[in-house]
Amino acid sequence: MATTATIDTTTKSRWGGGVAPMNASYGKLMMWFFLLSDAFSFSALLITYGLIRYAHPAYQGTVSEFTFSTEYWPIPEMVFEAVPFLHGVHAPLIFVGIMTFILILSSVTMVLAVEAGHRMDRKGVIKWMLWTIIGGLTFLACQAWEWSHFIHGTAEGTVNAMGETIFGANLTENQYGPPLFASLFFFITGFHGFHVFSGVVINFIIFFNAVVGTYEKRGHYEMVEKTGLYWHFVDLVWVFVFTLFYLI
């Protein structure tokens, strides 16, 4: 790792100034602390999901006899069971599983871009950044489809306590369960999706800079490392959203 910024640590006092005591540049350190604060935001949303879920009655029957009702919290595998181009096929969690794999893969291509940056391999950085951007865009497209399906609802709809039939979900009514279930779905996956979107934009800027040779002139590819941290964090959050929203 000869090409990463090396800092002289032979000085007697590590915290006495003149050296980077954590062996990381200012930008990288601040990215870490930003991600820590972002982790608090996401935890607040996900833990609120837990609070509201436990404040609602749970479904008591068997999975095979499950029907949608606004009276109890739905089983997620019965809500998220549609796959594009396979209308009417019951495929629980398959689509969200595919989305998870896409995001993990785009995280892998990001590590490979960072690794190529350490070796000053401009072509490698360009190639892997492009794959990361494609992965991010694919994930966003999948999420757009899932939102659209969730909003439009099933063909039969659900009859609520007032005797009206509801189709799909919005911020006030929800055919799959209590209205708060839909609100939390929109807030949590929306907040995450917006992070993915900004990640794709930032990745594109880094990709563009690598293409025009900005980092080659600068002599290091540390910017790739910093955006890499952000992109992995987005993947990390999705790991938690997948478990807490879709599996449990």
Binding site: A2, T3, H118, R119, M120, D121, R122, G213, E216
Partner: peptide, 8 residues
Amino acid sequence: ETNNVQVI
């Protein structure tokens, strides 16, 4: 342009 950069 890239001739002077050593790719490891």
